[in-house]
Amino acid sequence: MNSPAISVRNLWKVFGPGGEKIPGNRELSALSSAELLERTRCVAAVRNLSFDVAKGEVFVVMGLSGSGKSTLIRCLTRLIEPTSGQVLVDGNDVLQAGTAELRELRRRKVSMVFQHFGLLPHRTVLDNVSYGLQIRGAGKSERHAKAREIIELVGLKGYEQHYPDQLSGGMQQRVGLGRALAGDPDTILFDEPFSALDPLIRRDMQAEVIRLHKEMGKTMVFVTHDLSEALKLGDRILIMRNGEPVQCGTGDDLVGSPADKYIEDFVSEVPRADVLTLKWITRPLADTTPRDAAVLNSRLIIRDAIPAVMHSSCPVLVEEGGRITGQIDRDSILSVLQAAESAA
């Protein structure tokens, strides 16, 4: 893996009077949110956050409302000015960038999709999608040609001349997606893009994002409060609480070994068989197990392993990197399913 697309180090965002003093102050920065509010009338929306996003990765930031995730994603392109820290995009420090440099970054490298779409009501779909291109000075025919291409890509062909208020919520968000894609950025930021949509449409849009990610391979930073969305989309997930990182890892890391009680509560409702891989339930190899039993990869999702295990008369072997690491049997699968049953 080469250098990360986005690299965040010690990022702080403190709202309130005199907020710029807090990150440097060892005593104040250690306070909890409530104490901080009482002492300084400041709110730390993002506290000392560090993470890397690899090129082509879908990185999900998850947390409840008020956890600072929307502030965080806005700090990445300085739609909200961070208080202190470092944000590197392709190795360039965003916080040190001048106005023109920052504008260039927003125009060409990083674009964003918003929860409430943020479409311009007085412009057609075509003009909305080509807005970013117009802003950077592309000619009319050039930007319309590119916009038509994108509109087809996001599945809105035939709606070019419609206005946003003639479209359903899902279609409006397709326009928002198209607008973000039109500038051909390396990275797309999503700020709870689908939380205003109906569940059914949300599922379609999630599939759409997965499809676009596969086709175009863009780096994506995706903010959501919906755990199932996070697990579905994210290569890696960062869980935030009160502006602080709680845990960062792949979906089955979070479900399989939650860092604390908070995450445990969070993931308790998740159907574990759908998320966890065999690695989490593998037991040591027993002497009685025949060595010629069926073999499954340890990264297989448990639910997908059910038929093979249930049809096998003896325990099944688990391999990782060509080496047998253990075995699983019916009991181990049933215990996972039963745990999910009792949690629900």
Partner: peptide, 24 residues
Amino acid sequence: NTREASDSLGTTGLQRLLTLQLPM
């Protein structure tokens, strides 16, 4: 959120005025 969306595309102050604020 509309203004923010326009900003996220890198508009200058004048572009924001002409394409967003005055029309709306």
